[in-house]
């Protein structure tokens, strides 16, 4: 089984890095859709089904928090797992994000294994891409 991923970040470079890291991490990615802010992400979601969203928070036009609110209030989109990838680190800000349905955090700067581990964890599959209890964790992985 492979998964469609939506990456939302206003930095082209960061999107490219995240995409590359996912590709080399062993995570079974089918389609990778990119958006540079919350508005573009919502537009992308009207035409594509995605299994997980990885989103920055501090973005122009529509921030990550606004996007999380919109996702949470949409019956079709509210169950898509969301991972925030951000430099934000205050406890209060993280709690706000969790309250809006965010399932996991990746802090920039990050190591490749952190992305793979959290992707498997929030989707709830193991490293073979099968749903089960043995979901991804922080096991060492040789890149």
């Amino acid at each position: 089984m492979s998964f469609n991923v939506l990456i939302v970040d206003d930095s082209n470079s960061m999107r490219a890095v995240i995409k590359k890291v996912i590709s080399i991490s062993g995570f079974k990615m089918d389609k990778c859709i990119e958006a540079s802010n919350g508005v573009e992400a919502l537009e992308a979601l009207t035409g594509h089904w995605v299994d997980v969203i990885i989103s920055d928070i501090n973005m122009p036009i529509m921030s990550g928090f606004e996007l999380f609110e919109r996702l949470k209030s949409d019956n079709l989109l509210k169950d898509i797992p969301v991972i925030a990838i951000t430099t934000e680190s205050s406890d209060e800000r993280m709690q706000d994000a969790f309250n809006l349905g965010v399932k996991g955090f990746i802090r920039k700067p990050f190591l490749p294994e952190e992305i793979r581990g959290i992707l498997y964890k929030v989707i709830g599959v193991n490293y073979e891409g099968k749903y089960g209890e043995d979901s991804g964790d922080d096991e060492a992985f040789d890149f």
Binding site: N58, P60, T87, S90, E92, R93, R107, K108
Partner: peptide
């Protein structure tokens, strides 16, 4: 991205309980 990450990382190290708003 470099300045964004340095700023976020710095405020996380200084005090996680305090919230700082960062500009674009």
């Amino acid at each position: 991205e470099a300045v964004n990450m340095v700023a976020g990382n710095l405020f996380g190290k200084l005090d996680n309980s305090e919230m700082f708003n960062l500009s674009i």
